[in-house]
């Protein structure tokens, strides 16, 4: 039982990482209709920024993280201002290629700026464990879970209960109508890219201490975030987040109880089978075309 709880807590930690990335993807997707394949690359690049500020300037880690957030904000806004804003006539598939171009740029610039050696990022809370019903979780892990929930809770509050949130939701449901009604859709898209990019670096900083900071830092996160978006459905903001936690929990359970080698593959097969039954994910609905 305690092992189960242990796994469950760990899963919540990975789940929050996936969830933050998935939320970044869905924010951008719903406001600018772009499947952002560069979400991971953005997170990776800005995590490098955090590490190099931390290593080179001798500042506390949280200061370095704020530096990374600012860099993420600026890069996210720049992407929208320089590129995305000017692609109104471009088809959705071609827009995906733009994010591929962004990956190429970010992945190749990173070694030029930050060198080719893998770097290490310490935990924000270096030590200490909490014991809960026989299960252990580090304070850092607990902090990650709670901080992830806080960030997402805050964003959902803004989405649901504020004027800004209303503007975002209107843009998401119909960009054209939103513009006619005077919603500043351009600013909404700009904000979505900025926030999406910042969510990327948060998930990057959370996952970094468990591994080394390399160009592939976010590969797994990126793909699981996408699968989470499909599992939860692209039509709501909360679907992908729920999907991300499910993936976090189920994959760890499968890896432990079924097979450490095949767990990941089994999870994906299960999700594929689920999609054949519910093609628009947990919370999505089919849009019927009239003839």
């Amino acid at each position: 039982m305690s092992i189960f709880i242990q796994i469950f807590l760990r899963s919540l930690e990975t789940g929050s990482v996936y969830a933050l990335a998935a939320l970044g993807i869905i924010l951008v997707f719903r406001t600018s209709n772009i499947t952002n394949f560069s979400q991971g690359a953005l997170g990776m690049f800005n995590t490098f920024v955090v590490v190099s500020i931390f290593n080179n300037f001798g500042v506390p880690l949280w200061v370095a993280i704020i530096g990374g957030l600012i860099s993420a904000l600026l890069i996210g806004m720049m992407i929208d201002l320089v590129i995305i804003r000017h692609t109104k006539k471009v088809s959705p598939v071609a827009k995906q290629i733009i994010t591929l171009g962004l990956i190429m740029i970010l992945v190749r610039l990173a070694p030029i700026f930050f060198g080719v050696d893998p770097l290490n990022l310490p935990r924000l809370i270096p030590e200490g464990n909490l014991t809960l019903v026989g299960a252990n979780i580090s304070y850092n892990g607990l902090f990650n879970i709670l901080f992830g929930l806080m960030v997402m809770g805050g964003l959902f509050y803004i989405l649901q209960y504020t004027k800004v949130g209303l503007a975002i939701r209107t843009t998401a449901s119909n960009e054209y109508t939103a513009r006619l009604m005077g919603v500043p859709t351009k600013t909404v898209t700009l904000g979505a890219w900025a926030v999406g990019s910042m969510l990327g670096v948060i998930s990057g900083v959370m996952i970094a201490p468990t591994t080394t900071v390399t160009l592939n830092l976010m590969d797994v996160v990126q793909i699981n975030a996408f699968v989470a978006a499909v599992l939860g459905g692209f039509q709501t903001f909360y679907g992908p987040v729920v999907g991300a936690y499910i993936i976090g929990v189920v994959s760890n359970l499968l890896l432990f109880y079924v097979s450490p080698v095949w767990g990941g593959q089994i999870l994906y097969v299960l999700i594929l089978l689920f999609l054949t039954v519910r093609p628009y994910g947990l919370f999505g609905k089919k849009v019927v075309k009239k003839v």
Partner: peptide, 25 residues
Amino acid sequence: LISLKIEGMYLAIATLAVSEILRKT
């Protein structure tokens, strides 16, 4: 066969999942 049920972005990510299953294998 799956593509009969799943469309657009969902199909893209589903095929990505297939590819990932293969890559992990």
